[in-house]
């Protein structure tokens, strides 16, 4: 019953993401890109995909309906105003006597004439589209899981949405944490593993929704996640872990010296591959899906249109699987690294 419901929801999501991307399909994004009005369809599709992959200072539900978001700039003091002041880059925003310009999603400090001041660097702490989605996702996770936690006070079996979430929590604990970290140490990592799993998975899924969200396809977000994994691994590691990095037991001394830089590099490569993997998978998925949707428009024959529609639908379903798989792999490898950090080598 629940499964059938989920299937229907998933199918609907794929269908609507197709139509929504279609709505997002740009008729005249020229003002964003500052190019001529005469763009052929191919360039348009390219621009749309590029635009979609980037973070934005607007939450664009579809073309023509864009929600302005707050801009926060650190420029010897905080400057706070709404991004509607830019009017999509058409005008300069004036805040406390300073002028800013929005060009290709980036904010530059300018003089009153609109000339970019190169020597003046500013830091952009704006609530961009991605930050907004992250905030909403945090709220969603907090509400749904604290609700699940409260439902245990009423009885041993959760009800409603919690009935879907509980098996997933058990899945993370029994299939990811315990086999990779071990019965003895897994408890202290559970909070991070569960948070990172649901955070990535739900953000991946939200990327499949027809809202043009692409948070986990942003290298900044995956970098932050991988960095936290890296720090937790290093700070909870026992002396065995460091022993294996700095002075590998059981190999001859020259080998130990050769292995030292390799092992040290390995500690950085591991989270780096986590970062790249998630970023690349999600980005690639979005690019492929949007290209196929673009092909539906580009194709001249109705038969080709239908074929590309079917292909998009198929790949959409695959992407739903990838959304889960990438969250799973990220959590799984994170757990594996934690496991290697607390592993106790009784055999040496």
């Amino acid at each position: 019953m629940m499964k059938a419901k989920l299937n229907i929801i998933a199918t609907l999501l794929v269908l609507f993401s197709t139509t929504a991307f279609a709505l997002e399909h740009p008729d005249d994004h020229s003002h964003d890109h500052g190019e001529g009005q005469t763009m052929d369809l191919k360039t348009e599709i390219k621009q749309t995909i590029k635009h979609h992959l980037k973070d934005a200072h607007y939450f664009e539900l579809y073309h023509g309906l864009a929600m302005p978001l707050p801009v926060i700039i650190w420029d010897n003091g905080i400057h706070l105003f709404m991004s509607s002041s830019f009017d999509h880059g058409h005008t300069l925003a004036n805040s406390k006597g300073n002028y800013y310009n929005l060009d290709h999603g980036k904010i530059y400090k300018t003089d009153s004439e609109g000339h970019v001041l190169d020597n003046q660097s500013i830091i952009d702490f704006s609530i961009t589209k991605n930050v907004l989605v992250i905030i909403l996702m945090c709220a969603f996770l907090l509400i749904s899981f604290s609700k699940l936690a409260r439902s245990y006070k009423k009885g041993p079996i959760p009800t409603g949405f919690g009935r879907i979430l509980e098996p997933l929590v058990l899945f993370v604990r029994d299939d990811i944490a315990i086999p990779n970290i071990g019965e003895k140490h897994y408890k202290k990592y559970m909070s991070y593993l569960l948070t990172v799993f649901f955070f990535i998975w739900f953000l991946n899924l939200s990327g499949m929704m027809p809202l043009g969200i692409n948070v986990t396809g942003s290298i900044v977000v995956t970098f932050s996640l991988a960095l936290i994994t890296y720090f937790i691994t290093q700070f909870t590691a026992n002396k065995n872990y460091w022993g294996h990095i700095f002075w590998m037991p059981g190999v001859p001394v020259p080998m130990k010296i050769i292995l030292l830089p390799i092992e040290l590099l390995g500690t950085i490569i591991k989270p780096f591959s986590l970062m790249i993997r998630l970023y690349a998978n999600i980005t690639a998925g979005h690019v492929v899906l949007m290209s196929l949707i673009g092909l539906i428009y580009a194709a001249q024959h109705w038969l080709a249109n239908g074929a590309f529609f079917g292909l998009t639908l198929f790949l959409g379903v695959i992407e739903l699987l990838v959304a889960f798989l990438q969250a799973y792999i990220f959590t799984m490898l994170t757990a594996l690294y934690f496991g290697s950090a607390v592993e106790e080598h009784d055999d040496h």
Binding site: F145, S146, L194, T195, V221, I228
Partner: peptide
């Protein structure tokens, strides 16, 4: 900016969820 937001929000999320969700669950 996004990096700082993501890191701060995510770490806050871990601690909030630990207190209100994961621990009790």
């Amino acid at each position: 900016g996004l990096f700082v937001w993501q890191t701060v929000l995510f770490i806050t999320l871990i601690f909030l969820l630990k207190k209100y969700a994961w621990g009790p669950i």
